[in-house]
Design a binder for these strands. Structure first.
Lengths: 243, 243
DNA sequence: GCATGCAAAATTGTTAACAATCATTGTTTT
DNA sequence: AAAACAATGATTGTTAACAATTTTGCATGC
C-alpha cells in the first residue's frame, strides 16, 4: 500500500545541476594536473571555493570515488587517486576488450552518416593539432573513442567506456613521458580507414594496436613523484624518509 | 604546498561499513521484489528502519542510482528503477560484448586450478537446485559469471560486470515469465566444457548462446504492472487515465 | 639527537532544525 | 460536470551546529 506515483521521467535531462558542474570542474583540474595525484581534498575549502554546502561536496566526492578518480578513506578524507602500474595495465586491457567489440560492430554496420560523423571529429582533432591547442587535442582524442562507442549504439557500453576514458586520462597525466605524448591523432585516421574497410578483424586489430601504442608511450615504471617529494626536488636521498 | 600525506591504502578493506550494509540490504529487497519497480523510497522511513541518519540513506541512494538500480529525480525522491525493454536489450548486449572477451581469455589460459574453481562453483549451483533453494540458485547463477570475470584476471572488468549482473537481476525480476525461470544451471556446465576445450571461438559462441537464452526466457513485451494499476485490477479501461 | 606521550588544532562524521518543493485534496469558477 | 485554482500535508533540499576522529606541534624523557 501507499504506492503513490511512478517515477515517470529520467533524471538529468536538460539543465546542468550544480552537482554535475562541480564534478566537471574538479575533473578538469585533475586532468590538468592542477590537482596532483595523492593530493588531499579538504571539504570545507572546496565548499567555500564553489560556494556550496559541504554536503554537496560530499556527494560529489562519492561520484568521483565511484569513478576511481579519488580515494575516499574513512575519517581521513578524500585524495586524488594514484593509479598503480597494475591498475593502469588493467584499465587499458579492459579498454581493449570493450573497444574490440565496439569497432567490430561499427565495421560491420558502417553507414555514410556514421562515416561522416567520424570524419567530422577527425577534422576537429586535426584543427586542434594545427592550432597547437594541446589540451583540446587530448580531450578530443578521448572523445574520439567515445564517439565510436556511441556509434555502436549501446548506451551501457558508452557510459562505461566514458568512465574508463576518464580514468585513462588520469593515468596518462600521471605516467606520461617528459616530452608531451603524441596524441595519436594520425592513428585515429588509420582506424577510420580500417573501419571503412568493413572487415571486423582488421578493425579490431587496428584498435588493439592503437591502444597498445598509447600504453607503450607511457612510462609505466617510475610514476612521477607528484607529491612534495623533497628528495627529488633537492636531489638528495633522505636518510629515513617515508616509504 | 601543504600536501600533507599520501592516501596510502585502499578504502574498504576489512570490515563492512554500515553504508555498504544498507546497500546490500536494499539490493536484496529489490532482487526479491519486496521492493517493486517504480516504488517510491522515502528517506525518513528508511532512515528509521535502519536506525541511521537520513544523510546516510541519501549517500546510499547515490550509490544505487549510479548502479541504475534506482532513479533519483530532483525534488521528487528515489524510485526503484523500471528498466525499459530497450534498456534490458542493451544490458544483455553489453554483457555479450564483455563476456565474449572474458571467456576467450579463460579458454586460452585454462589451468587445473581455475578449472576446479569453476567445478566447485557448479557443484554449489547443483546443490542449490537439488535443495530447491530458488533464491540461492539465482544468486549463484549470477556469481558464476562473476567468477569467470575474476578468473580473467582483470579487476576493472570484474567490477563492471558485477554491476551489469545486478542490473540483469533486476531486469529478470521485472520481466520473468510467470513460471520461474530455469536458472540455466545446465548451460553453465556446457560452458565449462567449452572452456576446457580451449578454443576461444567455441567458448565465445557458447557464452553468446547462453546469454541469448537468458534473454529469450524473458517476456520482453508487457512488463508486469507492479504499481497500483486500478484499470487492470478492476478490469475496465479508464476514460482518460495516464499514459 | 631521537623517540614517546600529551594537548591543541584541524578535519571529518552526524544530527537536528529550517526552508523550499511537490503531491493531494478540497473549493471555486466557467 | 470539467477545469482551474488554492490550501494543506508530506517529503526533499539545505544549512548550521555539535561530536568524534585524526593530525600536528610541542614538550618530556631516554
Amino acid at each position: 500500500m501507499a504506492n503513490p506515483a511512478p517515477p515517470t521521467t529520467y533524471q538529468g535531462s536538460g539543465k546542468l545541476r550544480p552537482e554535475e558542474l562541480i564534478y566537471r570542474e574538479m575533473l578538469g583540474a585533475i586532468l590538468d594536473r592542477r590537482l596532483e595525484p595523492g593530493m588531499k581534498l579538504i571539504e570545507e575549502d572546496l565548499a567555500k571555493t564553489f560556494s556550496v554546502s559541504r554536503a554537496r561536496i560530499r556527494a560529489t566526492f562519492l561520484q568521483l570515488a565511484h569513478d576511481k578518480l579519488i580515494n575516499l578513506v574513512p575519517n581521513r578524507g578524500a585524495f586524488i587517486a594514484e593509479p598503480t602500474i597494475n591498475e593502469a595495465i588493467e584499465v587499458f586491457s579492459a579498454r581493449r576488450m570493450i573497444e574490440d567489440g565496439v569497432v567490430r560492430k561499427i565495421a560491420t554496420h558502417m553507414t555514410p552518416d556514421r562515416a561522416s560523423q567520424i570524419r567530422d571529429h577527425l577534422e576537429r582533432e586535426h584543427q586542434a593539432h594545427h592550432d597547437g591547442d594541446h589540451r583540446a587535442a587530448i580531450i578530443l582524442s578521448g572523445e574520439f573513442h567515445l564517439l565510436l562507442a556511441r556509434l555502436a549504439g549501446n548506451l551501457v557500453i558508452e557510459e562505461f567506456l566514458e568512465r574508463l576514458i576518464l580514468r585513462s586520462s588520469l593515468i596518462i597525466a600521471m605516467y606520461e613521458s617528459p616530452q608531451p605524448v603524441d596524441c595519436s591523432h594520425s592513428e585515429h585516421e588509420t582506424l577510420l580507414n580500417a573501419l571503412l574497410g568493413g572487415d571486423p578483424d582488421v578493425a579490431a586489430a587496428e584498435m588493439a594496436k592503437h591502444l597498445d601504442a598509447i600504453r607503450n608511450r607511457l612510462q609505466l615504471h617510475h610514476p612521477k613523484p607528484a607529491k612534495t617529494d623533497f628528495a627529488s626536488i633537492f636531489g638528495r636521498t633522505p636518510k629515513s624518509a617515508a616509504s
